[in-house]
């Protein structure tokens, strides 16, 4: 299992990275933490003529609290986000969800933005970004743009990112004080990609936000289920979310099972989030 040959580029600035990405548009791939890309290369399931290693670009490794959102730079590793005080304070659902992503050694190197750019429908972080209505910042030869999660994820490992674009930042909306939240996941083993995963935030204004992974070709927000959850009808929320999902069968779970689990996990996540919200209100 050895990768095919490639040309290796190490831009030192974002501009340089974008320049090479657009020069080799379509033939070049960004290498961030490599925790998803390199296995695919080793299996020769994919190959690219050029790899653009962004690890030597200095100003991409940050976690910043901004107005309304937490900004995660392209080189912020899962592990730093997991351990960051800002994340714990402003968007505690993010470190919670990160516990379900692989294992500590994988998270030490894997990046939050890489997880998002990879757009695996069973991955936790895209579901979370979707649930919270977050966005990504893309920079390419035609400039900088912000894409909402829902427009960004297009399908299985497919995003709205252009081949010459660099995902420079992911933006996770802050959870206001008094929110409750939960991440529930069912996987064959700890650390595996989700069979089904559900992110839930119960906001102080009474609304509930949900994001589901493993149940569609993209992470999705079950809007009707959110409404039912806000009205306190957990079972109905689960049922509606299941009705909105369109999973496939695979080795680890059948489509029927996945759909049923969407229902159970939505119920559990909402219940857990609401309990925490109540706890927060009291505490």
């Amino acid at each position: 299992m050895k990768p095919a040959a490639f040309g290796y580029l190490t831009p030192r600035t974002r501009e340089e990275a974008i320049e090479v990405l657009s020069r080799y548009a379509g033939d070049a791939k960004v290498l961030a933490g490599g925790q998803s890309l390199v296995p695919l290369l080793n299996f020769r399931l994919t190959s690219f003529r050029y790899l653009v290693d962004i690890n030597r670009i200095p100003d991409l490794d940050y976690i910043r609290s901004e107005q309304g959102y937490l900004a995660i730079g392209a080189l912020a590793r899962h592990r730093s986000v997991e351990q960051s005080a800002e994340a714990a304070r402003e968007c505690p659902l993010l470190p919670e969800a990160l516990q379900f992503v692989g294992h500590p050694v994988i998270r030490q190197r894997g990046t939050v933005c890489g997880s998002i750019a990879h757009a695996d429908p069973s991955a936790e972080l895209p579901a979370l970004l979707t649930a919270l209505g977050g966005s990504v910042v893309l920079e390419g030869s035609s400039g900088r743009r912000v894409a909402d999660a829902e427009e960004y994820f297009l399908g299985y490992l497919m995003t709205a990112q252009q081949p010459d674009e660099l995902l420079v930042e992911a933006r996770f909306p802050k959870l206001p004080n008094g929110s409750g939240f939960a991440f529930e996941e069912l996987a064959r083993r700890h650390g595996d990609f989700a069979i089904v995963g559900v992110a839930c935030a119960a906001l102080p204004d009474g609304s509930v936000r949900l994001g589901v992974c493993g149940a569609n070709s993209v992470p999705f927000r079950p809007l009707k289920a959110e409404t039912a959850a806000a009205q306190g009808d957990l079972q109905e929320a689960g049922r509606l979310a299941a009705a909105d999902s369109d999973p496939d069968s695979d080795l680890h779970a059948t489509a029927e099972y996945r759909r049923a689990m969407v229902s159970k996990l939505v119920e559990r996540a909402v219940r857990h989030a609401l309990e925490r919200k109540e706890g927060n209100a009291r505490g």
Binding site: H190, D192, L251
Partner: peptide, 10 residues
């Protein structure tokens, strides 16, 4: 990732 050996947590 598909052939699932038990880990420390299983």
């Amino acid at each position: 990732m598909d052939y699932l050996c038990p880990t420390f947590l299983e």
